[in-house]
Simulated scan of single mutants.
Amino acid sequence: MTLLKRLFLIALFFIVIGAGVLGYGYYYLSQPFGSAHQNEALVFEFPKGKHARYVIEEITEYYSLDKSVLNNTQLSYGFSRLLGGVSHLRAGVYEIKPTHNWFDVWRKLANGDELQFSVTLVEGHTLEQWLLKLNEATYLTGNAKAAADTLRAELGASYDSLEGLLLPETYTYRAYSSAESILRDAYESMQRTLAEVWSERSDDCPVDSPYELLVLASIIEKETGIAGERSLVASVFANRLAIGMRLQSDPTTIYGVENFDGNLTRAHLREKTAYNTYRINGLPPTPIAMPSRASLEAAANPDESPYYYFVADDTGGHVFSKTLEEHNKAVRRYQLNKE
């Protein structure tokens, strides 16, 4: 055998061995970590300054890979360096599912494909309730009350409070985002929504400014949770405002009661506060909750109706009345349980 042929065979041998190693490495890195029915996803933080070995150790321990076919962290690291691309990994909080493999992991960390968290800010809730929710949100930083104060101060003297100025919806964020960033997103979303709804208001819209629309929409939001009733409730308030009749809304009165315990009394209704619409004319000075787009649209486009009264019935909806006499009968039937 000539020297040239011998060298060729040696080279071919190493090529075959190398291809086999690469093939096994690809197979090794492409195996899922576990069964989706046996394990929950791993949520872990990859801090700045940490090495790829840290990732391997976290995942190996969580999915008990030392008890499965993937039983060697050194092998995992070696193959990952060779085939997986473990350089330039981005710090962050990531979710690794049982169906993922090492290729998925390195791709996620290289792209910064962090886990997205979310917080749902509910329509009809008050600013105070929202701030409590934000302070409890996972991986959200900063004090929500301080953030709200900062944002309100930036808005100047136009608003005494952020009440009603934030759009209810689900907001997504990355780990260690600030509560202030969520509040700013909610404020900007409401500004866009309010401008759109205001531009599409009907001639029957009973208020004179976008802010008054927020106030009225917040009352509608608190009065009914039934989508099909919003425009009819809006019509009652529009009819009352048109003739200078007081709104007489329990939710506004409750908003003005300090430390309300859930029991609205006659004394509350007699007390003159800025929010007691049994005692004041027109709208209260600010919204009383965060209104949804649906309530804004109802306030901007109320139904045409002959109604000036409504009372809750026993189905979760309301009975609407044209006259006080009809209304009193409905109250006796549905609130006082008298026919």
Score class of each variant (00 low, 15 high):
265 T>W: 11
305 S>Y: 02
227 A>Q: 13
211 Y>S: 05
224 T>P: 01
236 V>E: 06
239 N>A: 02
249 S>W: 13
248 Q>H: 09
260 F>P: 13
268 H>L: 12
303 D>C: 03
305 S>Q: 04
222 K>G: 14
203 D>G: 12
230 R>N: 04
297 E>Q: 14
242 A>I: 05
272 K>V: 15
219 I>R: 08
226 I>D: 11
245 M>F: 04
245 M>N: 06
277 T>Y: 11
273 T>W: 07
266 R>L: 13
243 I>V: 15
298 A>K: 08
277 T>C: 09
219 I>D: 07
250 D>F: 07
308 Y>C: 01
239 N>E: 00
296 L>G: 12
220 I>W: 12
312 A>H: 04
276 N>S: 10
199 S>E: 10
267 A>S: 15
234 A>N: 04
281 N>W: 10
229 E>R: 05
202 S>Y: 00
200 E>V: 02
277 T>A: 10
247 L>R: 06
204 D>A: 08
285 P>W: 13
253 T>N: 12
228 G>L: 11
203 D>C: 08
267 A>H: 15
252 T>Q: 11
238 A>P: 00
278 Y>W: 06
309 Y>G: 02
201 R>N: 03
228 G>M: 05
231 S>H: 09
229 E>P: 05
295 S>V: 01
257 V>C: 07
270 R>C: 07
263 N>I: 11
310 F>P: 01
217 A>D: 07
244 G>T: 08
206 P>H: 02
217 A>N: 06
303 D>L: 03
246 R>A: 03
202 S>T: 00
238 A>H: 02
300 A>D: 00
235 S>F: 00
221 E>M: 13
208 D>L: 10
269 L>C: 12
202 S>H: 00
209 S>Y: 08
261 D>M: 09
292 S>Q: 10
211 Y>N: 05
234 A>R: 03
302 P>N: 02
289 A>P: 02
298 A>L: 12
244 G>W: 10
299 A>H: 01
248 Q>C: 09
237 F>M: 03
294 A>R: 14
213 L>W: 13
215 V>A: 09
205 C>R: 07
219 I>Q: 10
266 R>F: 12
202 S>N: 02
200 E>T: 06
227 A>K: 13
231 S>N: 10
288 I>A: 00
311 V>C: 10
279 R>K: 15
216 L>N: 01
284 P>S: 14
238 A>N: 00
312 A>P: 01
212 E>D: 14
212 E>W: 11
223 E>L: 07
234 A>Q: 01
256 G>R: 04
251 P>T: 07
287 P>L: 09
214 L>M: 14
213 L>P: 07
232 L>F: 02
300 A>S: 03
